[in-house]
Design a binder for these strands. Structure first.
Lengths: 163, 163
DNA sequence: TAATTTAAAGAATATAATCCTGATATAAAA
DNA sequence: TTTTATATCAGGATTATATTCTTTAAATTA
């Protein structure tokens, strides 16, 4: 799955994570190439699936989605076999930004974004508790966001040396 | 903090979340306006801080960051007063994508992205446990990603009616 | 109704993306 | 070492897109 990337590719990935709309000519200037090879590299990264897309980063309070909640979910034992059905339900709920199958006491971690506690209560009652197999829900309300970035650091080769 | 948005603004936000690089003329076509007012609206949304930026969405396994971990952190009581110092440390660690101050048994939830468990162990030993005040760490490894999106649903007015 | 504001259209200009051709470098094979 | 193939890049021409300016229409207010 890892793709061969050289230092220029990593620079491109870095810059496009900082500004996904950076014009190709500026990108070219920054990495020290002309526009043609720069564009070719970007297109290749898109083609190979390294760059999966571009998105606008929205201020959540401005659009009335200022409350973030992380829910830990435990499924009932007899439901654990049919996870596909659970997944299908999750995908249909826009308030759930992310859902991870995790190790530990609970089975799933849900990243939920809503307007306020009222809307969260409504979400719990009409959406989450309606999903079959959900046995226990542990709600962790986000009081404040210390850090939240989408940018991931692309290191030189990905091969990591433990000293 | 919520900004007045009409239906066209919401369409723009929706489309630019789907494709942050959508050309203005296509955006205009989709929302049924000409390029001029469309561009004006986008610029206004950027100016008002509703659109905070644009970013390329990177495939993490492709860049050797295929392991996601959520860490719950408990700070020692005497450290809880000086959270600014904790924040400063968090901001300097690129593996930590997000850090939330949460309710519940633990104080913070950390969203961590690394290459593998080896690199995570190194991260724990050389980064996380070095932050002063960290008393307890509960590690939740992500076994699989059911859903992961950045797009948030922008509803009509943000005023929510509990039935 | 008249004045004022707001939003949008259309045309003209500026800027950027894309395509084409050719040059250079790197690596493998004779 | 020479030849061949393959990658990558540069520069210019073309096309597409963004941006600005001016005008028009609609909505709001006095």
């Amino acid at each position: 799955m890892p793709v061969k990337l050289d230092d220029i590719d990593r620079q491109i990935i870095d810059l496009l994570q900082e500004n996904g709309r950076m014009p190709n000519n500026e990108l070219a200037k920054r990495i020290g190439l002309t526009t043609t090879p720069t564009l070719e590299r970007v297109k290749r990264l898109e083609r190979e699936g390294v760059i999966k897309g571009y998105t606008a980063w929205i201020d959540r309070p401005s659009v009335n989605k200022g409350l973030t909640v992380f829910c830990n979910i435990k499924l009932s034992v007899h439901q654990l076999g049919k996870m596909e059905e659970f997944s299908k339900h999750i995908h249909g709920v826009p308030e759930i930004l992310a859902c991870y199958n995790t190790t530990g006491e609970y089975d799933y971690l849900l990243h939920v974004v809503v307007k306020d506690t009222n809307e969260y209560e409504h979400f719990l009652r009409t959406k989450l508790t309606q999903i079959p197999g959900v046995e226990r829900i542990y709600t962790g309300i986000v009081l404040s966001v210390i850090k939240e970035q989408s940018k991931i650091m692309v290191t030189d080769n990905g091969d990591f040396n433990e000293e």
